[in-house]
Amino acid sequence: MSLDTATVRRIAKLARIRVEEPEIATLQTELNAILGYVEQLNAVDVTGVEPLSGGAQMAMRLREDVVTDGGIADKILANAPDREGRFFAVPKVVE
C-alpha cells in the first residue's frame, strides 16, 4: 500500500511535526520506500501465533502504589523552556 500526499500530511499532523509543502514529496517517497520494504511480511503465515510485545522473559513486575520520590520541583523546573513560579508555562489554551 502506498501513501498519498494527503495521508503524509495527516501522519505529520498526528505526529505533531510541522511539515512545509516542499518537504511533502520527499517524505512521501521515503516513507513509501520503508513501507514497501516491510511489505514482505505479508508472506508470513501467522495463524495462531501470539504477538510478542517485549524482549523481557518475564511478567511485568508490580510494586506498592506509594509515592517513592518527589519534593524536587525546582530541580525539575530547571530545564523548563518557560515557567511561572513553580509551574511550567505554555501558550494560552483557553480563551
Partner: peptide, 24 residues
C-alpha cells in the same frame, strides 16, 4: 512518522500486530 502510521487506526493490525507476531 512511520511509527505513527503503523499504530494509527486501521493500520495497527496490518503492520504493528503482524510484526509482533513475526517477532514471536
Amino acid at each position: 512518522m512511520i511509527g505513527t502510521y503503523v499504530l494509527s487506526a486501521g493500520y495497527y493490525d496490518a503492520y504493528y500486530l503482524k510484526a509482533q507476531k513475526i517477532r514471536a
